[in-house]
Structure formats: C-alpha cells, structure tokens
Amino acid sequence: MTSVTYKKYATSIRIETLKMIARAKSSHIGSNFSAIDILTVLYNGILRVNPKNQHAPNRDRFILSKGHACASLYAILADKGFFSKKLLETFYLPGGILAGHVVHSAPGVEISTGSLGHGLPVAAGMALAAKRDRKKWRVFCLLSDGELDEGSNWESILFAPHHSLDNLTIIIDYNKIQSLGDTNKTINLEPLAAKLKSFNWAVREIDGHNFQAIERALTSLPKQKNKPTCIIAHTIKGKGVSFMENSLIWHYKSSNEEEFERALKELQEK
C-alpha cells in the first residue's frame, strides 16, 4: 500500500472512531488515535487473517493488550468484514456486544483485555504453541507504554527470548502519556530500547505515524532469528486532531457537539 492509501484508510478509521466514542459518550479517544496508524498497517497486508474463516488454525494471532483502544479495532474489523458495520452503532451502548474494552465475543477478536498486563503472557503462550507444533503462524501484540509498569509483562519479556519465540512481535505504542500524566514522571521506562535489548529482544524504534516505517518494521520479521521482536513505535496521543494531541484529558473525555464538528472537519480535510 502507498502512504497515501494508508493515510486515507487511517483517516476513515479515525472518523469512525470519533463517531463511535461521541455517540457512546465513552473514553480513550487519545489512546485510539495514537494506535490507529499501526493497526491500519497490521490489517492491510501484514496479518494473515480471513474474515470468512475467522478460526482458521493457521491464522496469525493479533492481541490488543491495550484493550481500551478497542473502538478503532472494532472499526477496522467491521471494515474488513468480520462483522456488520451496523454493530459499530451500538458500541458501548445497551443491547450491543462491543464493550468499552476489547471483547472476544466480537468476531475477529482473539482475547478480551482491559486490565493491563494480560495480553503479552497470553501472546507468548500462543507463540509457544506454534513453536511446539512447528506451525508457521505468528503472534502480534500491541501494548501501551503505561502498561509496561505491570510486572506480568516483564515476566513475559524474560520468558519469550529464553524460548526463542521469534514468531512473537510486540509493538509498544509509546505515546508517553499514561492515566495520570507523563510516563517519564510516573515510572520512567527509559532507557526502554536498551532494557529490551538487554533482555535479548531484537528491538527496532520507529515513528509510529510513518506508514512506510511501520510497514518496513512489520514486513521484515523476525528482525533477528531466534529472538522475539519488539517494535517501539513513538507515537502521539490523540494523533490527527490538533486539540487532542498530547493532551491527557482526551484519555477520559468524549467530545461535545462543537468539539466533534471541529475534530471531524480537521480529519476530513486531511
């Protein structure tokens, strides 16, 4: 895909996400917007998944560990035909099936997450299953940066290289803002790349909004044979809407009518 096509796709998902969250009066739009460019590349040529055969044993597995960024994933899954776009209208609303943290009752979703620090251990188990059964399918797991405070992740970060899980790729959506403020002021993760390298991961740092960089990182896998890959994607929370970018309040707030129109206009002009 060209950068222009990626961008067009990502914008359409941002618009859909904006509408879903505004309609539902739910939260986490900033976290969604920081991850959408990564999700866009994953679901347009990287992940070997098939909406017509969702449980195919040899499919790639994608786990959204930052389950609060689910609105954008639901929008992509609906767009790809995993379920009807009509369902998006009931996101977070009575009678719907799409909860405010990603749920496995939605077709195309491997596991439910929401409580942080759960995705990576499960992903490691899936990667180990493929290795033990000598299967070619791969596992991708998208984590938030704040989520790396959780000790469970570090247990898995120790585990995966020890078992040479080079079929496992994690992408860290490093927007540098967590629930109460900056990650470096909460529990500093730096030097993050050096930490992961010293734990025997193959590490690549990219601009998480540069489609070609994301595509390059996700096509040349594993980065190193016998090592799991960690892609640290430097991102901007709220990316795509000027007044939402790098602003903590958009972890919580849903847009009012005026904000919605302004955000929509900005996105449509992109």
Binding site: V122, A124, G125, E155, S156, F159
Partner: peptide, 26 residues
C-alpha cells in the same frame, strides 16, 4: 519434552501463557 515446560518462578506469565496455549488447542 514437547509436552512439558518449566515456566520459572513467574506465575502471572505461567497462567496467561497457559491460557494462550489452551486457546491454541492444548
């Protein structure tokens, strides 16, 4: 040996991983 693993002293990873393996047919 292919049906055995020592996960180390890391029960959160052990348990999450167990779910991942089980969801893959084990």
């Amino acid at each position: 040996p292919r049906q055995f693993l020592n996960a180390g002293i890391a029960e959160q990873n052990m348990t999450g991983m167990a779910a991942g393996l089980a969801l893959s047919g084990k």
